[in-house]
């Protein structure tokens, strides 16, 4: 199908974009990489009155080091993240995960800010950003605020972002790159959205889990952090099977969400498989 008619705006700077977003109560949507919004428009699931194309706003396209954190502009594309020396040096976890997102032609357009704003529960980056203790910067015409990634995602396609705000950057403390990380996802085909997945990080160069984060994705309405699994691992050796089994068992009891093909029980099982394999593949 083709999208319905809309008015197209192409602001050249952030303040013009924010003003447009503010201007009235029509259905106004920002367009980033379009790799999710365009399909939604072609299917007419989204029928905006006004489309604000963010692709000309250069100030949203940079990756910079600012003091003790790395600032990633919301319009940075996956392919640019992958090639950024700053990201390669500081966040090998991001580099490791990007190839699992869709396919090259989609990563050439899709943006980190778009993925964060969309909040698809099956997306990889929201969970990765939670393990990295990232914060999301939101701007409107009259204010700017920063929200911790863990508090940002609310539900399926739902975040704390207000309709007059844009995600302007994703900020990650340099110190939060864990010494070790593991990632695993179950998909039907390389590049597909995950059916279940897990990210595990541990901030210790020694032999024990420390400051562990366990986040599951594609199994609930939003990224699922599992504090009980983290507690089971903390302080124990990377090869301690008892604590690893305890961490995997602790996945039970969380609330899982079915999708079209997999019910809650399947999701729980696949979440455990993902966690087990993510821990088994710990590297870094």
């Amino acid at each position: 199908m083709k999208s319905s008619a809309f008015q197209y705006e192409l602001p050249e700077d952030l303040s013009s974009a924010l003003k447009l977003l503010n201007s009235n109560d029509l259905d106004i949507l920002p367009l980033a990489g379009g790799q999710s919004l365009m399909p939604m428009m072609n299917f007419r699931v989204a029928q905006p009155d006004i489309l604000i194309d963010l692709n000309k706003i250069d100030s949203l396209k940079n990756i910079t080091i600012e003091g003790d954190y790395v600032r990633i502009g919301s319009m940075v594309r996956y392919c640019e993240l992958e090639q950024s020396e700053i990201i390669q040096k500081h966040f090998p976890l991001i580099i490791h995960v990007i190839p699992y997102i869709a396919h090259s032609a989609i990563r050439n357009r899709g943006t980190l800010g778009g993925s964060v704003s969309l909040a698809d529960p099956a997306a990889e980056m929201p969970s990765v950003l939670i393990t990295l203790n990232a914060s999301i910067e939101l701007s409107s015409s009259n204010s700017t605020r920063s929200v911790n990634a863990e508090d940002f995602f609310k539900g399926i396609f739902e975040t704390v972002r207000k309709s007059n705000e844009l995600v302007t950057s994703i900020n990650i403390p340099v110190s939060s790159m864990p010494k070790k990380f593991g990632f695993y996802e179950v998909t039907r085909r390389h590049g597909d959205y995950a059916i279940a997945g897990a990210v595990v990080t541990s901030d210790n160069g020694q032999d024990n889990f420390n400051d562990t984060r366990v986040v599951l994705f594609a199994v609930s309405t939003k990224p699922m952090r599992v504090p009980k699994s983290e507690a089971a691992l903390n302080g124990n050796n990377f090869n301690n099977q008892d604590s690893i089994n305890e961490a995997i068992d602790a996945v039970t009891g969380n609330s899982f969400e079915r999708d079209l093909h997999n019910d809650e029980t399947t999701k729980e099982t696949l979440a455990k498989v993902s966690l087990k394999r993510a821990i088994g593949g710990l590297n870094g």
Partner: peptide, 21 residues
């Protein structure tokens, strides 16, 4: 027309893109 099949893939400024998106 929703980015999945790849039939519309072509080169824009040296990179592949989905021309339906």
């Amino acid at each position: 027309e929703h980015g999945v099949c790849g039939a519309c893939t072509l080169d824009m400024n040296g990179q592949t893109v989905r021309s339906c998106l």
